[in-house]
Each structure stands twice: as C-alpha cells, then as structure tokens.
Write a protein that binds this DNA or RNA. Sequence first.
RNA 1: GCCGCUUUAGCUCAGUCGGUAGAGCAGUAGACUGAAAAUCUACGUGUCCGCAGUUCAAUUCUGCGAGGCGGCA
Length: 337
Amino acid sequence: MLSKSIIPVIVVFGPTSVGKTDFLLNLSKISEIINIDSLQVYKYMNIGTAKPGAGTLSQIKHHLIDFLDPNEEFNTGDFVHEADKLCFEVFSRDKIPVISGGNAFFLINFIKGLPATPKCNPIVRKKVEEELKNKGIEELSCKLEKIDPDYFSKISKNDTYRITRALEIYYSTGKTVSYFKIPEKPRECYNFLFIGLIREKEELHERINRRVDLMFENGLYEEFLKLRKMGYGSSSPGMGAIGYKEFFELDNEQSVEWQPGDKQLGLDDIKELIKKNTRQYAKRQITFFKKIDNVIWENPDNFSAIFHKVEEFLKQHGKIVCNFDNCSFYDKIPIKK
RNA sequence: GCCGCUUUAGCUCAGUCGGUAGAGCAGUAGACUGAAAAUCUACGUGUCCGCAGUUCAAUUCUGCGAGGCGGCA
C-alpha cells in the first residue's frame, strides 16, 4: 500500500536568486513542485517575492504558491502538514514530489519532522507581550534562566523573540523548551535526494542586484502601492517580506493615497536597501543550508553534473522510471550506444 | 579674497584636559525547538589629511599647507 511505502522526494534548495526556478524546468513532466517559501504563498505579491511566471507554472505544476491572503499567517507547522499531504498526493499520481525553495527553517522541520512543541497560542502570546512591555526583557530573561537554564544557555539574553516564545511554551504547557526534544534524523517515511544549488558569492550578489533592478522596472513600487490601497499594512504577515517592508521605512505618511512619483527621491535608497537585505538574507540561508547532510552541491547552470545522481535516485523507484520517456529530464541524458 | 567650521575604520561620526583610539552601519563567520524574507551571537591596526615646531612623548597643542562645507565680499 502507498500509505506504508517510502515516498521519494527530491529536495532542491538554495539561496535567493541562485536560479532555482530555471533549474526546476529540467525536472518538468516527471515531477510536481511543492514550493517551500513563506512569502510566495501570498496572493497579489508577485514581483517582490519573485514568484515564478505563468510560463514556468504552465510547464510544471506548483503547489503552495499564490493562494493565501497577505493578512493570514503561514507558519512552519502549516507548511509541514501541507507538504506531507502533497507529497503523498503527488506520489499517488506517479510523479516525484520536488520540494523546492529557499526557506531553510521550513525545510529542516520538514526533513526531520516538527518538534513536539505546541504551535503558537495567540492568547498566551499576547499575555507574554504584555509582560514584556511591563517588566522589560531583563526580567523575562531572568525568569527564563530559572525556568529552563539549559535552553537559556543556548540563546542570548537579548533574544526577545526566543525568550518570549520559550515563556509562551511554558505558560501554555507547563513544560520547558528543553523538555521537547528536536528530532535528530531525517524522517524515514521519505527517501530524500538533497540538491543544493550554489554560486560564487560575487556572482550571487550580481544576480541579486540585477534582479532587484528588474523588480523595480517591472513595477515593484506600484505593486506595493496597490497592496496598500487594498488595505495591507506593515502588520500584515505578507508585508514583512524583503522587497515590501522597506517601502514603509522611507514612508512616514503611509498614506494609501500616494501616487507613484511622490517619493522619487527615496526610491533609489529603498532599492539599495532591498539589495542589501536580500544579500544578508542569502547569507543566512546558506549558513542554515550547510547544516543539512548528504547534499549534492552544484551550480544550477551545471545540471549535467548531477543528472546521473538524479537518474540513479529515480531508478530506485521503478514506477516512476516507467514514466520517464518523453520528459525534459530524459532529453538531457546522453544516448549511449 | 577674507572669516568661521571641518578632515579619525569601507560609510556616518565619537574621543584622547598630550601616553598611538571606539560606536552605529556595512563586511566576515556562526546560531536557529510550530512567528523564520524573523531573531540573535562573535569578530575592529586605522599613514587619526600632509609637513614642520614645542615636548621624554603629538592623532590631540602651535604654525604653514591641502581638501570639504558654510558665511561675507
């Protein structure tokens, strides 16, 4: 039965702008893409999140993309649950599920499975936020040190984000963060093939800069204004994305009545800010990805260097190979005589 | 042309009442327990604009240059 079988999953990841989308076209017809991205999930946010275009989407089926309102949250747990369902469905259609994208935190949680820590409890979180406001971070930090010294020793006393989350877990379950163990190995219900796409730093930075320039040419600012007019503000989860949040910084009025051109002088600064933030993000992504074991690292332009590995992987799953004729991947395999 | 201010890290600037200097940002490396395009950690030798003078000692004081900014002509 399928439910008991091990599902093969090709995981393609890499920093932003590395060229994942183009790379995936090599796998069209044998696979469906499960997008691993926390912001391409949002509707109306196309330019700044570098969503694949209609051409790409028509060539290869994508999931978890362009379906959510920017006011709604899409967190790690949501991703893992949806991705698990989709992997099963795609495999049932005799296709290979390809998890692809740049969100390393989602990816780690998908590979190893979610830790048993509870999901966010909005009421408790609000309470902790109140407490933070009244007592300050030093006091919360001391509190956590007493409650969970193990976890406290691993984080910084300045890490408001993690300290408040740790207290939230404690308040809602009575248990500490360290009580919940993180899974150590990849889940055994999947057979993973990890492909990490990477480029030289200078080249990656050039691609980032070029892409941001192109986003502006394609109307990123206008897209932002449109989202503002639709009522999405800086507190909308989607609007925290690099490529959107920066527009708020030079915009003190935050008026929906703005017209393109009102803030001409600031736009170049914003553009440079977006480039900088994207470069820094790419750096963090790469650091995170390096933690994953058994990765085939390759430049995305060099598909031929890894296709043998992909081929070998696919051969382990006979019924997939049966569908292997007449696909674009097959076209790239040199004919041996 | 005159007067004033200014010149210190890749950038913006502190500072040394004379004992060769440090913040923020950038950069580099790293962390990551259901918010993660988030959040956090570590890492600082630089002709202290140049030349001369005073001094045991000058980036610091004095003089003369040079660049920048502002004001008056």
